[in-house]
């Protein structure tokens, strides 16, 4: 009786240590998983493939005009305009581009969303169609009183295609994750030349 109690106690002790070790291992694994790998730095003059979209940054500038591509800007404020060539690589028309580009927080308040405009005729955020590159302008309101920067950082977000999601089993683009960062020089104005590859 006593013998069995002792062996059980031992077993429990060892089991406890084992559990602690397992939890520690899981923690280490989790820590590895969460470890921030440095994001790849992308070249501004390149085609950036993020699954749904193919992006090619064209030019960036700061404007103090009242209108930028038909959008009314905050009076007295300045706006950072980034022109990008975007190609929809999916099989369907889509406007899933609102979270694709995130400007660095040094120039833009991260809480403000950019206006996104088709430069061709200043249509506000239209659907873009498969396999047809379009020039789009991302327009961020600059922080009040911010100086015009020489360049700014941009984080590119990509999503992953799942033929069937977990809940309903429908196809779609999920799990936005940063794909890389790039630094874009800020040019003189709307008339500046495009970045050449």
């Amino acid at each position: 009786m006593l013998e069995s109690a002792r062996s059980r106690l031992k077993a429990w002790t060892v089991a406890g240590i084992g559990t602690a070790a397992a939890i520690a291992a899981a923690g280490v694994l989790g820590a590895f998983g969460a470890r921030h790998e440095p994001l790849p730095v992308l070249a501004p003059a390149s085609q950036i493939d993020i699954g749904e979209w193919l992006l090619r940054p064209l030019k960036a500038y700061v404007t103090a005009e009242k209108y930028a591509y038909g959008t009314l800007l905050k009076p007295g404020g300045k706006a950072l305009v980034l022109e990008v060539e975007m190609t929809n690589r999916t099989a369907k028309s889509t406007k899933d581009y609102f979270d694709v580009l995130q400007a660095g927080s040094t120039v833009v308040d991260p809480a403000t969303k950019p206006f996104i405009v088709l430069t061709r005729d200043s249509t506000m955020s239209p659907e873009l169609h498969p396999g047809m590159p379009e020039r789009m302008a991302y327009i961020w309101q600059l922080r009040d009183g911010a100086a015009v920067p020489a360049s700014f950082d941009l984080t590119v977000i990509r999503k992953t295609y799942k033929p069937r999601d977990n809940l309903y089993g429908l196809p779609g683009w999920f799990n936005p994750t940063p794909a890389g960062t790039l630094t874009i020089p800020v040019g003189a104005g709307p008339a500046g030349a495009d970045i050449q590859p």
Binding site: A91, K92, S93, T123
Partner: peptide, 15 residues
């Protein structure tokens, strides 16, 4: 929408 011969689907333009 307009479905092309290879299955690409073009929604009516929003412009």
């Amino acid at each position: 929408s307009w479905r092309g011969p290879t299955g690409l689907t073009y929604d009516q333009t929003e412009r």
